Amino acid sequence: MNEPLFLKAVLQEKIWGGTKLHDVFNYDLPSDRVGECWSISAHPNGPSTVLNGPYEGMTLAEVWKEHRDVFGNVKGDVFPLLTKILDANDDLSVQVHPNDTYGLEHEGELGKTECWYVIDADEGAEIVYGHHAKTKEELESMIKEGKWTELLRRIKVKKGDFFFVPSGTIHAIGAGIMILETQQSSDTTYRVYDYNRKDDTGNPRELHIQQSVDVTTVPHVDAETGITTTQLENVEITTYVKTDFFNVYQWSITGNAVFEASAPYTLVTVLEGEGTLLVESGEYPLTKGTNFILPNDIKNWTIKGSLQIIASTPGTEM
């Protein structure tokens, strides 16, 4: 297949969601509490649908299962990556994700390592990233005693920041932050703390204390990213992280920028600007909020215009 797969995103309502996914990206929201846009997803809880070409109308999961050549005939039962845009109108729950071994054993799906690019953030907005417990026993004790101020490590963030969040990292996105998240294709989340909020039926939201203690890395260690920037003709490429799970890049394009494939396929989301994608099969308009995959048959492509793009590829173990 020598044309890109443009994808229809899936919008997820959340107790902490808002309207920025419409205000910023012009997505058509079902309510004023939409927290997540699953931009590129083959997960059963929100699979993207192909909008063009021979696979139009199929889900990404179906294309992965039935037409693996599109992805270079790579192995794997499930499409490994999931790209989201999150609008935190309110604080997200404090949570942690398992690694693959624990996730497969206890939940029947992959664990979740993820990373965040901060699209925008209100002045003074914060994330939870890590904790101050020195041992598992101290972690469990502080959780049970509700010592959240002493336990949780908070960091102020601004537009353009990037964070790598391996499985086992206690974390939460704070109110007033919009991020693009690249993650393993998993929906397993263990809630550690949720500010005593209630769900739509008036019941306290479920917590997963024992699982959280089981999977949290103690003591917390900041994940290394090794961010690098390369200037090529009409494009600045920032490499945010390269891991076994995914590689994540930003393409800052001004003019005509030529790319060569470095992986079996590439996931692309346009965050800012507009322009045109040129491949052998034709030209395709790009606007803010466009999501697509460059399949294995496309080895070279050109993007012209003024655009900010986040791209990702499968990691080194794929």
Rank of each mutant, 00 (worst) to 15 (best):
N203I: 00
Y240F: 15
H106S: 01
N89C: 05
I127L: 12
G273R: 03
K65L: 07
L21D: 00
T230F: 02
G53F: 06
T189G: 02
G72A: 10
T83Y: 11
P285D: 07
G146Q: 04
T254A: 04
E224Q: 14
E317H: 11
N2Q: 12
G103F: 02
H220P: 02
P44I: 02
T302L: 09
E236I: 09
G275V: 11
K288V: 05
Y27R: 14
K288P: 00
S48N: 00
T230M: 05
G273F: 12
N45I: 06
E66Y: 14
D69H: 12
E105S: 14
S212E: 02
A257D: 12
N296C: 01
K156W: 04
K112A: 01
D120A: 12
E123F: 06
D187T: 09
P295T: 05
L307M: 13
T266Y: 04
D120S: 15
L86H: 03
D69S: 15
A125P: 02
A223C: 13
S93I: 04
L207H: 09
G174E: 08
E137G: 09
L60Y: 08
N300S: 08
L5Y: 05
G124V: 12
M58V: 01
K304A: 03
D28M: 12
V248R: 15
E260P: 02
E181Q: 13
R197A: 13
T225Q: 08
G255E: 02
E36F: 03
H43V: 04
H22M: 14
L180M: 15
T113R: 01
D161E: 06
